Amino acid sequence: MTETDIEALIRSLVTPLLRHPESLSITVSDSDRFRRYTVNVDRADVGRLIGRQGHVAAALRTVVEGARSRRSNAKKIRLLINDHRH
């Protein structure tokens, strides 16, 4: 079984939703239990990526988490969308 390139998966899922796809950047960081993918997009695209009541973001998280390796030592995946509020 092959490993899924999670960053490429996120990029392929998110890009069609954006009006400014050139501003998309994904940063990866690791902790003890999680691999965190932070998605940064243009301020105008944040709402399109989150969706009404967070439905789009929840669907993206479901697909990405389902694509991770099920090995016992594989880290869980966190998908964060930077909403530029902080």
Score class of each variant (00 low, 15 high):
residue 36 R to H: 11
residue 80 L to P: 00
residue 62 T to G: 04
residue 58 A to Y: 06
residue 58 A to C: 00
residue 60 L to M: 14
residue 24 L to A: 03
residue 59 A to W: 06
residue 35 R to G: 02
residue 75 K to M: 01
residue 40 N to F: 12
residue 71 R to W: 00
residue 67 A to W: 13
residue 13 L to Q: 06
residue 27 T to E: 13
residue 64 V to T: 10
residue 40 N to R: 10
residue 41 V to T: 04
residue 73 N to L: 00
residue 34 F to L: 13
residue 61 R to S: 06
residue 12 S to V: 06
residue 75 K to R: 15
residue 57 A to G: 01
residue 68 R to G: 02
residue 74 A to I: 00
residue 32 D to W: 03
residue 80 L to A: 11
residue 34 F to V: 10
residue 4 T to R: 08
residue 45 D to N: 04
residue 50 I to N: 01
residue 45 D to C: 07
residue 9 L to P: 05
residue 83 D to C: 06
residue 23 S to D: 14
residue 55 H to V: 09
residue 63 V to W: 00
residue 85 R to S: 14
residue 84 H to E: 07
residue 37 Y to P: 06
residue 86 H to G: 14
residue 5 D to H: 05
residue 77 I to R: 02
residue 44 A to W: 01
residue 4 T to M: 13
residue 10 I to H: 05
residue 44 A to T: 09
residue 59 A to K: 07
residue 59 A to Q: 10
residue 85 R to K: 15
residue 28 V to T: 15
residue 24 L to N: 04
residue 23 S to F: 07
residue 43 R to G: 09
residue 21 P to Y: 07
residue 55 H to K: 15
residue 22 E to W: 00
residue 8 A to L: 07
residue 35 R to E: 03
residue 50 I to Y: 00
residue 73 N to M: 00
residue 86 H to S: 15
residue 79 L to A: 08
residue 84 H to W: 10
residue 14 V to G: 06
residue 31 S to C: 08
residue 56 V to K: 11
residue 44 A to M: 09
